[in-house]
Amino acid sequence: MALCLGQVFSKAKTFRPRKRFEPGTQRFELYKKAQASLKSGLDLRKVVQLPEGENLNDWIAVHVVDFFNRINLIYGTVSEYCSERTCPIMSGGLKYEYRWQDGEDYKKPTKLPAIKYMNLLMDWIESLINNEDIFPTRVGVPFPKNFQQVCKKILSRLFRVFVHVYIHHFDSICSMGAEAHINTCYKHYYYFISEFSLIDNSELEPLVSF
C-alpha cells in the first residue's frame, strides 16, 4: 500500500530547509491559490495557467520556489541511496551526463558524483531565490530584466534531478510507495514549463522514452 505524502517525505529526510513565502504578501496569496487549485483535483494543465489579472513574473517566481522545495524534498528522500560509490557521476543513464559549472569555483564543466552535484545545485538555487535583486519580495520592487532567463536555468537544472531520480533511483521510490506523488510532481512541473516555454525541448529528451 502506498504511504501518504507526509510519511514518505518526512522532515528528517529534507535535503535542505524549505524556502517559504511571507504571509500577507502578494506572492503568498498566489502560492495559496496555486496550492488550492492543486488540491482541488483540477486538470494540471489548467492549474498551471496564469490566473486572470496576475503578473507573469510573480506566477513564475512562486512556482520556481515551490518546485525547488518539492524537488529538493524528493531528492532528500533518495539521497541515502545516492552516494559517491553508487552514483560516481551525475547522470541519467548511459547516454546523459551532467557536469557542474557555476563560473566561480567551477569555471569549466566538471564531472562530479551525483550527491556533490546535487549539493552544489541546491546551494546555487537557494542563493538565487534568496537574492532580493533577483527574487524581490518587497512591494513595488520590479523583477530584473533577466529574471525569466534565470528561472529557465534554474528549472532546467532542476529537471536533471528528476532525470537522475527516475533513471537511477526509481526502484527505491517504488519501494517506499512514493511513485504516485513523484509522478504528480513531475507532471505539474512539466505542464508548467510547457505552458510558458521555460525549457528547450532538447533538455527533456532523457525522460521522453523512460
Rank of each mutant, 00 (worst) to 15 (best):
R160P: 00
Y81V: 07
A34Y: 12
M118P: 00
L50M: 13
E52M: 11
R85Y: 08
A12M: 02
V163N: 03
R85F: 10
C87N: 15
P17V: 03
W124Y: 14
K187C: 05
Y75M: 08
D171S: 11
A61P: 07
K145E: 15
Y186P: 01
S83D: 03
S91Y: 00
K11N: 10
K152G: 13
S91W: 06
P88V: 02
L204F: 13
V62N: 02
V165M: 10
Y186N: 06
N72D: 09
T110E: 12
E52S: 15
N57S: 14
T77S: 00
I167Y: 09
V64Q: 04
A2M: 14
S202L: 06
T110Q: 10
D133M: 01
E126R: 08
K11A: 10
E179T: 04
R45W: 09
Y190P: 02
G76E: 12
H164V: 04
K95N: 14
G6F: 08
S91E: 04
F170N: 09
S37E: 05
V78A: 01
F192E: 04
D105K: 09
P136I: 05
G93E: 04
N183A: 09
F196N: 10
F143N: 14
L73M: 07
Q49V: 15
H181P: 00
I60A: 08
L204H: 08
V47M: 11
H63V: 04
F196R: 08
F135R: 01
R70N: 09
T25V: 07
F143K: 03
R18I: 01
C87A: 15
M90F: 15
E203A: 09
W100K: 00
R16M: 13
Y166G: 01
S197Q: 11
